[in-house]
Computed example of a mutant assay.
Amino acid sequence: MADIAIIGAGAMGSGIGRKLVEGGANVLTYLEGRSAATLERAKAAGMQPCGLDRIVDADIVLSIVPPAEAIGVAGKFAAAARDRKEPVTFVDCNAISPDTMRLVAAAFDGSGVDVLDGSIIGLPPQPGKRGPKLYVSGDPANRSALLAGHGLDVRRIEGPVGAASALKMCYAGINKGVTGLGTAMFLAAIRSGADQSLKRELEESASDLDQKLSSGIPDMYAKAYRWVAEMEEIAAFLGKDDPVALIFKGMAGLYRKMAEDRNADGELAAQLDGLLGRE
């Protein structure tokens, strides 16, 4: 039975943990500083909470944390694994830019840890539904096959560390960018009194987009705080000389505003829900 460790047990981390447990793996998790709710979620998924000293003994370790925590997690794990004699594979699965991914890899210089670049696309695994895909690059030895052997949909990219992160930036830029653009325009329409006409026009002339926004915007509220750093990573990925980077800096501001709204009175979310028929 393979030992697979996951650092982070949010909705995605715990969902993937459950999938691996169902696939016959022994799944460990490191939850220092996390909430009691996160601890219970991990245990319910069949994951075994333990310290870093046990995590470094796993066959493969997945980092599934908010983007802003990726470098810190890598540094902490690298320090714990520095003197380990047996090889271990660390897969960063976070929504970070290729440049940030290279900083993550640099944290392991001289450690002997094999670092892979991963990106997760799709929703957390749910019973009866197709789970997410884990894209992996920088893996010439096919170490990620261990994950595929325990139930994950692993897609190898024949490219170096940074290629999988670039894919995530591009996909998230399109997917979450559309959600952010729809949110911004709906709020502008509400302020201007054009909201009902805009919604009706979308229903009539762009029904696929209307359906995507009607489900995607309410689903975003609880995730907005995590998407702030992701939008900033996309802006950094595009680079300061690309004018489109400014759009994603703006998206970061939008999602920050929606996160603050959720922590306050939820007025903006209520306005959007009213327009989308989610009251």
Rank of each mutant, 00 (worst) to 15 (best):
G122S: 05
E233T: 10
V21N: 07
A235K: 02
K133I: 12
A252P: 06
S215T: 15
C93R: 03
Y171A: 12
K199E: 14
R278C: 13
K85M: 11
G266M: 08
A81N: 11
A148S: 14
S111T: 15
A74W: 01
I190Q: 10
A229P: 10
D57I: 06
G151A: 04
K212F: 15
L187W: 07
Y171Q: 09
P66S: 08
L123W: 02
V113M: 01
L167D: 12
G149C: 05
D109R: 04
V61Q: 04
C170P: 00
A245Q: 11
V115K: 06
P98S: 06
A58I: 07
G23Q: 11
L187N: 10
L146H: 02
A163H: 03
G253M: 05
R143I: 01
D3Y: 00
A44Q: 13
D83P: 01
D114V: 04
P127T: 11
S35L: 03
G128W: 05
E40Y: 00
A145I: 10
Q48T: 13
V104E: 01
E32V: 04
G112Q: 03
I6A: 09
K249M: 04
S97C: 03
V178I: 15
A95P: 07
A36N: 08
S197R: 09
L103F: 00
M185W: 00
S97T: 06
K76A: 14
R34E: 08
D219F: 06
K168L: 11
S205L: 10
I120G: 06
S214C: 13
G274E: 14
T183L: 08
L238C: 06
A194Y: 05
I174V: 15
L275K: 11
E204C: 08
K223M: 12
G193Q: 10
T179Q: 07
D273Q: 12
G173T: 08
N94K: 05
I55V: 12
R155V: 13
A42K: 02
A79V: 02
S63I: 07
G162V: 07
S137P: 08
D114S: 10
G182E: 07
P49N: 04
N263R: 14
L62A: 09
Y30I: 01
D261C: 13
V91P: 14
G13F: 03
E260L: 13
D99P: 00
G193E: 09
L152N: 13
S14D: 10
Q196N: 12
E32T: 09
I217Q: 14
T29Y: 00
I7A: 05
Q126P: 06
I64C: 03
F237R: 03
A36H: 03
M12D: 07
